[in-house]
């Protein structure tokens, strides 16, 4: 099943009463997300990631194009009882405590009062907020807000979950916990759609990712597909590299960098690697280590955005 589908979606914001300004936040954007996947949407600030999630919740009205969630054409009020959402910079009514927030928004998502009540304790447990359940949310820290927000997004046992920067402001241990929660939800068959800047994190959990820039979809695929091709080798040497050797190496392979005792190079083939090793050995430079590193999502992301800026 296709859980989320956007067809030639465009959104132009018009702001200002007198001097009208138009911002094309999404331009002819099409995207499909299979049910049961963790999908990561990446992009620089202002790319349109939040706008996309908001159109899927009918918070923002698309200028043109079609959107479906759970095979239902939007806008549709009732479908939202099967959706969970953690907005970026969300703000709960400050006069409520953590558990009251869950009770309130749980009931608003269409779950009966007694069902909500029975879900509160395990959910607070899950997000590690049990000890602060009776504290007013206005006194919560950023990370606590984020955790209670995640619990709120799960209170109606949704089939599709939208998370806008879910680990923003959460400490490293908490981020790992959140990743585990998401993996677990995936195992239960939920579809998770997340926006994030933390590429290393997205890389760890996403089945598929899409990269968005200035409202346009640049690419989409699995993490492997997006990072395929490039390998980085780091060669450790003893002593320093003489300038002549260095120039010769630079002539031989592209993108060579020397950093103290380490020589990093981006190599296409193992033949290139061997030629580089031969060169070093010929000049009697002792090699202490060779490390092969796959390109990270961050590397391909930065390359892609750079190419986009260049073109």
């Amino acid at each position: 099943m296709i859980a989320i589908a956007a067809e030639s979606l465009s959104k132009t914001y018009t702001t200002g009463l007198v001097r009208k300004q138009r911002i094309n936040a999404l331009i002819d954007f099409s995207l499909h997300v299979e049910a049961g996947q963790i999908f990561g949407l990446l992009g620089p600030n202002g790319a349109g990631k939040t706008t996309f999630i908001k159109t899927l919740l009918s918070l923002v009205h698309p200028t043109s194009g079609k959107v479906h969630v759970l095979e239902t054409r939007l806008p549709n009020t009732r479908i939202r009882s099967r959706i969970g959402y953690l907005p970026e910079n969300h703000r709960f009514p400050g006069y409520l405590t953590g558990e009251q927030v869950l009770l309130y928004f749980g009931q608003l998502s269409g779950v009966g009062r007694s069902d909500v009540k029975s879900r509160i304790t395990p959910l607070l447990e899950l997000v590690g907020m049990s000890q602060w359940r009776r504290m007013k949310v206005r006194r919560y820290s950023k990370g606590m807000m984020q955790r209670i927000g995640l619990a709120q997004a799960l209170i109606n046992d949704p089939e599709v979950i939208f998370l806008d920067e879910p680990t923003d402001g959460v400490d490293p241990v908490g981020r790992k916990e959140i990743r585990d929660i998401l993996q677990n939800l995936k195992r239960q068959g939920k579809t998770i759609f997340l926006n994030s800047h933390l590429l290393s994190e997205v890389e760890l959990i996403s089945d598929r990712v899409a990269i968005l820039d200035k409202g346009r979809l640049l690419t989409t695929g699995t993490v492997d597909e997006l990072t395929a091709g490039g390998y980085q080798y780091q060669i450790g040497i003893e002593g320093t590299l003489a300038d002549t050797v260095r120039n010769e190496a630079s002539a031989m392979v592209m993108n060579i960098q020397v950093n103290g005792n380490t020589l990093s190079a981006e190599l296409k083939t193992t033949a290139e690697l061997n030629r580089l090793i031969d060169l070093l050995r010929r000049n009697n430079i002792p090699i202490t280590s060779i490390i092969k590193k796959r390109d990270t999502l961050e590397d391909s992301f930065i390359n892609l955005i750079k190419r986009e800026v260049a073109s």
Binding site: K54, L59, T77, P87, R91, F105, L108
Partner: peptide, 18 residues
């Protein structure tokens, strides 16, 4: 106005609520 505040209205409107 408190209901319409940025960050709060998003929470309300993501519920099955007209």
């Amino acid at each position: 106005p408190a209901t319409l505040r940025k960050g709060t209205i998003d929470l309300y409107l993501s519920k099955p609520l007209g």
